[in-house]
């Protein structure tokens, strides 16, 4: 006797429509998070979800993609969502890296400007 559950077309079709509806309603940041988690290890996936804002976790929970408890495991629907989503495109990854670099440069510039300003004030005094 086979251990696999008998195929139930209406159940799988309902899951598919639930999945499609859920993915269409997610915000872009949440979709991007899921895309980037697609290739992450289960440990990193859990950590990324645990450290995500409450709103992001709440959004995934409300759409049935994430369990409610603190372990932040994807539900079967969530795992199905990860399977159907495309991984983050290399262009998008480069854009994220460039954005991170821009933020870093800006912060360094601000820090330098602050120091120069302090020095000027000290000299004036």
């Amino acid at each position: 006797m086979s251990n696999s559950a008998p195929h139930n077309p209406s159940k799988s079709s309902s899951l598919r429509s639930q999945l499609q509806a859920g993915l269409e309603r997610l915000g872009p940041d949440t979709v991007q998070l899921l895309q980037s988690l697609k290739e992450a290890s289960p440990e990193l996936r859990r950590l990324a979800l645990q450290t995500s804002p409450f709103a992001t976790r709440a959004e995934l929970i409300a759409h049935g993609l994430l369990t409610r408890d603190e372990s932040c495991e994807m539900t079967s629907l969530g795992n199905a969502a990860l399977e159907v989503l495309q991984p983050l495109a290399p262009d998008a990854r480069r854009e994220l890296a460039a954005e991170a670099q821009r933020v870093l440069d800006e912060a360094n510039r601000e820090a330098t400007a602050g120091e120069t300003e302090s020095e000027s004030v000290a000299e004036a005094v």
Partner: peptide
């Protein structure tokens, strides 16, 4: 440092930094 920059800039996550931290 990169994670702090990303979060203070309002980004939701920084997966590469999280992976290295872990």
């Amino acid at each position: 440092a990169e994670l702090v920059h990303a979060l203070q800039d309002g980004q939701q996550f920084a997966l590469a930094s999280l992976a290295v931290l872990q």
